[in-house]
Design a protein around this nucleic acid. Structure first.
Length: 730
RNA sequence: GGACGCUUAGCUUAGUGGUAGAGCGCCUGCUUCACACGCAGGAGGUCACUGGUUCAAUCCCAGUAGCGUCCACCA
């Protein structure tokens, strides 16, 4: 394989930054443990299969202590093949069994052919040693174990490599092991110990071994030389977030960010991979140069590539142009918002901020919006290897692009994970269908007028009511957008279209259309056009395709909806008194439907309701006709002598459902008693609060007033229900 | 091991210091002339548990349990 050379502006930018940081002495060469995959093949050896099944052994072997005849330490290890690489024996300094030995020396048993003087290793005390594990004595192999490497650093131990890059034992491992595969060497080393009479026992032991995801062979921790970066501009990057100048949504992620920024470790930026941006460092004998172009004949480039995030953190520069200040960079840097997942706050977001300050002297974005992660039904992250990601194209063919989009947006709260459920997409599709049909209904009434202004026409209270709800919707949306609450935006739009526009407005508009000569008909049409025009625009970011189609089909604009103006909150005006009339009518209709539903009846032209209205309410014949339409009955008539019939309390008064012959007194009594009981419970709750002297002493007077009002209303309601009950019990 | 979250109706989930909301599912009734991908009703919740603060806690605080994420001798 030849190294792939990335010859692009992006790569140039990345390498240039490396060179710059190198000059600033922020990049340095250091040692660290890497998980090395020494073999590229897929078939496992017998020994490796055993490892994978976690059926390894724990080998207990003895090490003689120097200067003390017949004194041995017993060590338990899963990796006897690394004994030739041991440079110390460690015990816990708090372990009374061994404290006296700290500072003395032991003789490493392997390789046996070396003179004892070269196998002399110190016995050290280190907190890392687990008193409970094995014998409480640890062999320290700094070159082949991450934890041992750190112990080695703490105690300035030398490291001896005994396994080479291809996974074979080298000469340091001794003549008996040299050239063997590292895993075959394990049993060979155990055999050697046995021959030396130092092996005490082998016990089955299930130890965790990391396997390479791609090659499926055991990975080998290996000491290696790597490039490291000391992060630049850390202080500014930390305070910009903690001071609230750069905002995170939801805010709590800024705590996570701050915690990490306060504990930064140098970043290991080199990777031993075939693909990536190459490290711009050149070698010739002992000379080292950091520059993008080859210095000339005889120079070879560093074989490593950069960590993938080393290019990602420069994304704003690489895409907009750097180091020359391009017009794009001037215009778009800093940008307003970054949208990303919280799982890459450290990998990407934090590093982009630091790069921003270092190379632009300014933050790269002002707000970061963290989405939730979608998980499957079992709560797992969607991933390619698990194969639990649904195919978006399949979902689109089932639910439509807008249905999928809306369904997901509606359930995606800020920064909280969501469980993926196809039901949500179904709801999105149903909503798109609903919207489509609502517009189709409007289209059937005749052509739309894009300049429609409902205020220019006489209109029903229901038009004003819808306008008032539209006004409220737009105010609410503005607040929600400011708080980046995108799922709530979808939710309130959904509720508006379905409940206000379809369920309430269209149902009453139908009543208006029954009468072609209705003076309020033009007002109703204008209201529909006005509201649809705004709602389609409000929905457009969430459902781009269907809103575009409806926009053009209805003729609300002659160009794409994308070029239309965003509806500004506060522009909608309406008659407030009318909205109250409409609200009462809806409330009365809903109560009547409930009453009818109690008897398992559906509406019919033969059915009628009687209304004993309260003296204050002025109800017109038109209102009664609309009410009848909403109730799906023949008529609603005003009465002053209510019959012995089921009754419900409504905003407009007592609504009766005369049911000659159908009425079952027992059933009606039960219904009334149930309602009385429920009302009584609500009343008692308020009364209890008001009766408590501690509450009345401390609770705010407005609250108490509210409670008193609720109680009073409940009392009245109960009284009227009792009156009604008397009709059936006497 | 450390940090940060989550736990509300059968399911997926909003939300608030003083009456707990939605969609789906379920039950009942509707082939009502935009829509059965629909319409009208209904049942279903001690808001994980234990303490504390408060006149009042599902909400604030502390602890417990379960679940999750990120970072891991750095935490």
């Amino acid at each position: 394989l030849e190294r792939f050379t990335m010859d692009s502006d992006y790569s140039a930018c990345v390498q240039q930054v490396f060179v710059d940081l190198f000059k600033k002495k922020l990049i340095y060469r250091g040692r660290r443990m890497v998980n090395w995959c020494p073999v590229s093949r897929t078939a496992l050896s017998d020994e490796e299969v055993i490892m994978k099944e976690q059926k390894g052994f724990l080998y207990h072997f003895r090490v003689p202590v120097m200067g003390e005849k017949d004194r041995f330490l017993t060590i338990a290890t899963t990796r006897p093949e690394t004994i030739p690489g041991d440079t110390a024996i460690a015990v816990n300094p708090k372990d009374p069994r061994y404290t006296s030995l700290i500072g003395q020396f032991a003789i490493r048993p392997l390789p046996p052919e070396l003179p004892e003087a070269q196998r002399r290793i110190p016995i050290i005390g280190d907190e890392h040693v687990d008193l409970e594990f094995g014998t409480g004595v640890l062999k320290v192999t700094p070159a082949h174990d991450p934890a041992d490497f750190l112990i080695g650093q703490r105690h300035q131990l030398p490291s001896i490599e005994v396994i080479d890059e291809s996974g074979l034992m080298n000469a340091e491992a001794g003549s008996a092991l040299a050239g063997l595969d590292r895993i075959k060497a394990r049993t060979a080393a155990a055999e050697q110990l046995k021959e030396l009479g130092l092996l005490e026992k082998e016990e089955p032991y299930a130890n965790q071994v990391g396997f390479s995801e791609r090659a499926d062979v055991p990975v080998e921790p290996r000491l290696s030389e790597q490039w490291f970066l000391r992060y630049p501009s850390t202080e500014k990057s930390r305070t910009i977030v903690s001071s609230g100048k750069l905002r995170f949504f939801p805010e709590r992620w800024s705590k996570v960010y701050d915690h990490w920024m306060g504990n930064l470790q140098d970043w290991c930026i080199s990777r031993q991979l075939w693909w990536g941006h190459r490290i711009p460092v050149w070698y010739r004998n002992q000379e080292v140069r950091c520059q993008i172009q080859s210095p000339g004949e005889g120079w070879t480039q560093d074989p490593d590539v950069l960590d993938t995030w080393f290019s990602s953190w420069l994304w704003p520069f690489a895409t907009l142009g750097w180091p020359e200040k391009t017009p794009e960079l001037k215009k778009f840097y800093p940008t307003t918002d970054l949208v990303t997942g919280p799982d890459i706050i450290f990998f990407w977001v934090a590093r982009m901020i630091m790069a921003g300050f270092e190379y632009q002297g300014d933050l790269p974005f002002r707000n970061v919006y963290f989405t939730g992660l979608i998980r499957d039904g079992k709560g797992r992250k969607l991933s390619k290897s698990l194969g639990n990601s649904p195919d978006p194209l399949d979902l689109i063919s089932k639910y439509g692009a807008d249905g999928l989009r809306f369904g997901l947006l509606r359930i995606a709260p800020q920064g909280v994970d969501i469980r993926y459920d196809e039901k949500q997409m179904e709801e999105g599709r149903n909503f798109a269908n609903k919207l489509w049909n609502a517009c189709r209904f409007r289209q059937q009434q005749g052509p739309s007028n894009p300049q429609a202004n409902p205020l220019n026409h006489p209109r029903t209270p229901f038009s004003d009511f819808l306008l008032s709800r539209l006004d409220r919707l737009e105010q609410e949306l503005e607040t929600l957008y400011q708080g980046y609450e995108f799922s709530q935006v979808a939710q309130v739009l959904y509720a508006f279209v379905w409940d206000e526009f379809c369920a309430r407005f269209i149902e009453t508009a139908k009543a208006d259309f029954m009468n072609a000569d209705s003076p309020t008909r033009p007002g109703t049409l204008a209201t529909a056009d006005f509201v649809l025009s705004r709602v389609l625009r409000l929905l457009h970011p969430y459902m781009p395709f269907i809103t575009e189609e409806l926009w053009l089909t209805l003729g609300l604009g002659d160009k794409t909806i994308q070029f239309s103006e965003w509806p500004k909150a506060g522009e909608v005006t309406f008659n407030v008194a009318n909205t109250q009339t409409a609200e009462s009518c809806y409330g009365t209709a809903e109560a009547g439907r409930r009453l009818r539903g109690e008897f398992g009846l559906s509406g019919s032209a033969k059915m009628k309701f009687l209304l004993k209205s309260s003296p204050s309410s002025r109800i017109t014949d038109d209102d009664l006709r609309t009410l009848a339409k909403l109730l799906q009955v023949g008529s609603v008539e005003i009465t002053s002598n209510p019959p012995k019939a089921p009754m419900t309390l409504t905003p407009w008064g007592e609504l009766y459902l005369p049911l000659a012959g159908l009425l079952d007194p027992a059933k009606e009594t039960a219904r009334l008693q149930k309602e009385i009981a429920a009302t009584e419970m609500a009343r008692a709750r308020e009364a209890a609060k008001l009766a408590d002297p501690k509450m009345t002493a401390k609770a705010p007077p407005e609250k108490q007033e509210e409670w008193r009002k609720i109680e009073k209303e409940a009392v009245e309601r109960i009284a009227r229900l009792h009156e009604q009950l008397k009709l059936f019990t006497t």
